[in-house]
Simulated assay, not measured.
Amino acid sequence: MADKSEFFREAGVNTQLAHIGPDPADYHGFVNPPVVHASTVLFPNARAMETRAQKYTYGTRGTPTTDALTEAMDALEGSAGTIIVPSGLAAVTVPFLAFLSAGDHALIVDSVYAPTRHFCDTMLTRLGIEVEYYDPALGEGLSALMRPNTRLVHTEAPGSNTFEMQDIGLVSRIAHAGGAVVTMDNTWATPLFFRPLDHGVDISIHAATKYPAGHSDILMGTVSANRETWSRLKEASITLGICGSPDDSYQVLKGLRTMGIRLERHQQSTLEIARWLETRDEVARVLHPALESFPGHALWKRDFKGSSGIFSFVLKAPSADRFKPRAHAFLDALRLFGLGYSWGGYESLAVHVGLSDRKVTKVPEEGPVIRLQIGLEDVADIRRDIEAGLAAASAV
C-alpha cells in the first residue's frame, strides 16, 4: 500500500481523527490496536537488559496501546512528545513539578481551574515555591510581574467558569523573554480549535476526561511538549511513576475518532442556547467568548477556530442574599440537565459556580454564576428545561 502520511497531513480534521495514531499494518491489519496489559517486559539476553536496547522495557514507560494514543495526540498537537496521566489535574501537576524547584516563582492565571489553585496553594507552597496569581486581562502588564526567579507561567484561555480570554502569544513572548516555561490548560478548546504550541506555549495540557473521551466514563490527562521541554517532562513522568492505563488509553483513542463531529454539534447547540439566553430578562449577561458581546471576543475570533459546549451565564438576583436561593431553585427545577461536575460528555450538565477563591480578578456581581455544559440532546428540549429553571429562579 502507498505511503499515506503525506495524504493525511493535507486532509481535513475529521479525516485525520479517523486515522491518526496506530497503523493497522503494525497489528496484522486490525483497525484498532490491541490492549496490551503489561508490567514486566522480558529481554532476550543480559546485554539487552543492561542497555535496555529495545523499545519497551517496563509497563510504566509505555506499551503499544498507550503509544497509540500519545502518537495520536502528537499528531493533533504538533508536539515532540506526549505523556498520559490518570487525570486532568495530574496533567497540570506533573509539568509543574517537572519545571519548578524550591526558591522559584510561578505566575498562575487567576481564572485557573480550582483544583490547580489548591495544588499551588498547598503542595507548591510547601515545596518552597512562591505562587502569584495574575489577572487574565493583564496583557503587557505581565512583564512587571516577571522576576529573575520566575520559572513558569501558567495560562488558561478561556478561563475556568468565567471564560476570560488571554493573548497567549503575548504571554508566551513575555514569559520566554524572562526565561520562563509556559504551560496552558487547553481542555475547553481541544487541539481542534486551538493549538497552544503554535502560539508559543511550551506545554499543552488537556483533561482527556472531557472531549477526547467524550462519554463521562474515563479519567485521563494528556501533556504534550515542544522539542525544548520534552525530555524534562518525560523524565519527570518516569521519576514520579505517573502513567495512564492501557484500557483507558484504548477508550480515549476511540473517543478521538468522533471528537470532531461531536464538537461540531456541541458548538452549534451551545451558541444557539447562549444567544437565546442573551435575550432573556432573567439573565444579566452570558459568559461565552464566541459571543460578540463578550469582552474577550476579539481575541477568541483572532486565535481560535471554534468553541465548545461549556459556558456560563449570570442569573439576575435582587440582592446578594438571593444569589444562592435563586441558583438552587434554578438547578432543582431542571429535569434534562444533570447536576454534576466535569463536562465534555454527551449529556447536558449544570452547576452553580463558586468564585470566592479569586484573588485579583473581578467576579460578576449581578447574581449567581451558572455554568452549563450543553450536550448532544435536541436544542428545543434543552431550551425547555432551562426555561423551567429560569421560571423557578424568578419565583424566589
Rank of each mutant, 00 (worst) to 15 (best):
R275F: 01
S249M: 09
L253F: 01
R257V: 10
A274W: 01
T270K: 04
I273P: 07
Y250V: 09
I273L: 15
L256K: 06
I273W: 04
R257E: 14
R262D: 01
G255L: 01
R280Q: 15
S293L: 09
H288L: 10
E264H: 07
P289A: 12
L291H: 01
P289R: 08
W276F: 12
L287N: 04
R257Q: 14
V252D: 09
S293C: 10
I261M: 13
H288M: 14
R280D: 10
K254D: 03
G244D: 12
L253G: 05
L256A: 04
E272T: 15
V283R: 14
R262C: 00
T258D: 14
L277N: 12
A284Y: 06
R275L: 08
T258Y: 07
L277A: 11
I273T: 08
V252G: 09
A274D: 02
E292G: 00
Q268L: 15
A284G: 04
T258R: 13
E272N: 09
D247P: 05
Q268R: 15
L263G: 03
K254I: 03
R280M: 13
Q251M: 08
E278V: 04
G260I: 07
L271A: 05
E292R: 06
I261Y: 10
P289F: 06
H266M: 07
S269V: 00
